[in-house]
Computed example of a mutant assay.
Amino acid sequence: MGPFFIRAALTGFAMWVVTRLVHGLSFVGGDTRLQRIGIIFVVAVIFGLVNAFIKPIVQILSIPLYILTLGLFHIVVNALMLWITARITANTTHWGLAIDHFWWTAIKAAVVLSIVSWVLSLVFGNVRRSVRG
């Protein structure tokens, strides 16, 4: 259960960084700092579940678009996963992730989230390997 919480915390941190860098993407709700951190963590867990269950189905259905665009359609799929996460949190809880516009905001956020997640995996992947070895 520990690796799950670490991955969710890193995803939440990456999403928080993205909200600071991309105009139009924000977290909604939470009056205190602790509530805001809890909201970010829950949104990261929901995002992980969306990526685990919905993303593979969308990827299989969109194989022709992946081939046609030489893989660039992956950015649109990642943006769609962010948008689905925002819709789930907005429609069920009225707090969570808010995206102004799908096309430009979600696309920019997907690109920045990929880069931030990659950098975090480089940094914390090396830390995890050094602790084990």
Rank of each mutant, 00 (worst) to 15 (best):
I107A: 10
W104T: 12
R20M: 14
R33F: 15
H23T: 11
R128P: 03
I67N: 10
A8I: 08
N126T: 14
L97N: 01
I63Y: 09
Q59R: 12
T93A: 15
A98D: 15
L65F: 13
N51K: 15
V43N: 08
A90T: 12
I46R: 05
F53N: 01
I115R: 05
L10F: 07
A98F: 10
T92V: 10
T85M: 03
V116L: 01
V127E: 09
I107F: 12
F4N: 05
F73A: 08
F41M: 13
W104H: 09
T11Q: 09
S117G: 13
S26L: 08
D31S: 11
L34N: 03
V28D: 02
V111H: 07
F13R: 00
N126S: 13
F13W: 10
T85H: 04
L21F: 11
I67F: 10
V116K: 04
S130Q: 11
H94E: 14
I63V: 14
I99A: 01
I54E: 03
I88S: 09
R36F: 03
I54F: 10
I6A: 15
L82C: 04
R128Y: 13
K55I: 06
G48S: 07
I84R: 05
A44E: 07
A110S: 09
W16C: 02
W118S: 10
I39F: 00
T92K: 03
P64V: 11
V28L: 05
L120W: 00
N91V: 08
I39D: 04
M1L: 13
N51M: 03
H74S: 14
F27V: 03
I39Y: 08
G24N: 02
V116F: 02
I115E: 04
V131A: 14
N51E: 07
S121Q: 05
F5M: 14
R128K: 14
S114A: 12
R129H: 10
K108L: 15
L49P: 02
V28H: 11
I60D: 05
G96S: 11
A14I: 11
I39A: 02
G125Y: 07
L68F: 09
T11D: 04
G29P: 01
P56M: 03
G125W: 01
R36H: 01
W95G: 07
Y66F: 15
A44C: 05
F5G: 15
M81K: 09
W103T: 00
L72I: 09
W118L: 14
N51G: 13
A9M: 14
I63L: 15
I75V: 14
L122G: 09
V17L: 12
G48M: 12
I6Y: 13
V22C: 02
M1K: 06
M81L: 08
V43F: 13
F124I: 11
G125V: 09
L120A: 01
Q35T: 04
V18S: 03
V112H: 03
V43G: 06
P56I: 10
V58F: 06
A44T: 06
W118A: 13
K55G: 07
I99N: 00
G29R: 00
A44L: 01
A79T: 00
H74I: 07
M1E: 15
M1T: 09
F27M: 11
I40C: 12
P3E: 11
T19D: 06
